[in-house]
Design a protein around this nucleic acid. Structure first.
Lengths: 154, 154
DNA sequence: CTGAAATACTCAGTGCCCTGACTATCTGGT
DNA sequence: ACCAGATAGTCAGGGCACTGAGTATTTCAG
């Protein structure tokens, strides 16, 4: 009797949205490479030679999770890690040829998948969709990093 | 050079949104009970005596995941499971007093958390936010269940 | 130049999320 | 009355996501 309507709970909707995406990704993009793995490949295409922590920052994963994702990509031979000669704590990451090939292939499929995923929305609605989610996510992340103002983040 | 802008990838945004929510939940609602666990409690407040599969359907979890979540709630003494005397395959689930107490307490905190989470949006924007996410998630879930038309789902 | 603090990474532990394979039970058509 | 198919739940396995504790390396203050 005191039950709540979950369809107006942002957390519940976020989870359902993410699950729906996960499943569509699996059927339309790849069963091998996951969406977070693709995000890492993408970050390393943009900026080769990043260290692990920075990649995690770029794609929004904490130190533990990024370590696991990277070790899987490493095992599959999609990237290589070498100690930074300047700083013995860091590993510098770089895609292999195979990694670049995979990224290229998945980029095409991902674009197709996004079209299907967003098909229920008009073009203007899609713009609003991105804007609203980004603002909520940015603000919530800002709550945890009170040091840097939200304007300084990207 | 062929890198993509992840801020316009719905899957990436969905993941970030969900993570942001997870962290806020942890600080503002509970470190013990997770958001999916609360969803299960809520479903059983609304409809006591549901079986496991149906609860999973209500909150959007598959049979394996719901089994884990329920077994954790069972271990914590928040619900009880008994074999359905009418159908020996089913377990019927019912909250304990402790479970109902927990649900009541978290309902209040969850409402507060949602306010903070959605604070960056105006009231009208929040409505749009819910509507757009729901439509995308519903459509994507519909792609997997071609049997039942989207209108028949809730 | 040296020791304390900061930083990059690892590891153990918990929880969510899915698939595919398996068991137990029930149902319906012959 | 039977058995083939559907259904509820379990289990093993892989991957994502976090915290808290620990190791190695670097940096910086005195």
């Amino acid at each position: 009797m005191a039950a709540v309507d979950l369809t107006s709970h942002p957390g519940h909707l976020a989870r359902r949205l993410q699950q729906a995406h996960y499943l569509l990704w699996n059927t339309m993009v790849s069963e091998e490479i996951t969406s977070p793995q693709f995000a890492v490949l993408n970050a390393l295409v943009a900026e080769p030679g990043l260290d692990q922590r920075t990649v995690g920052e770029r794609v929004g994963l904490d130190r533990s999770t990024i370590a696991e994702v990277i070790s899987r990509l490493d095992r599959r031979g999609l990237l290589g890690k070498v100690r930074d000669p300047q700083d013995g704590r860091r590993f510098l990451l770089r895609l292999t040829d195979e990694g670049r090939r995979t990224h290229r292939k998945l980029t095409v499929r991902t674009a197709r998948m996004n079209q299907v995923f967003l098909a229920p929305l008009t073009a203007e609605e899609q713009t609003v969709f991105f804007d609203l989610i980004r603002r909520v996510a940015d603000a919530a992340e800002g709550l945890r990093n009170p040091g840097e103002p939200a304007a300084a983040r990207r």
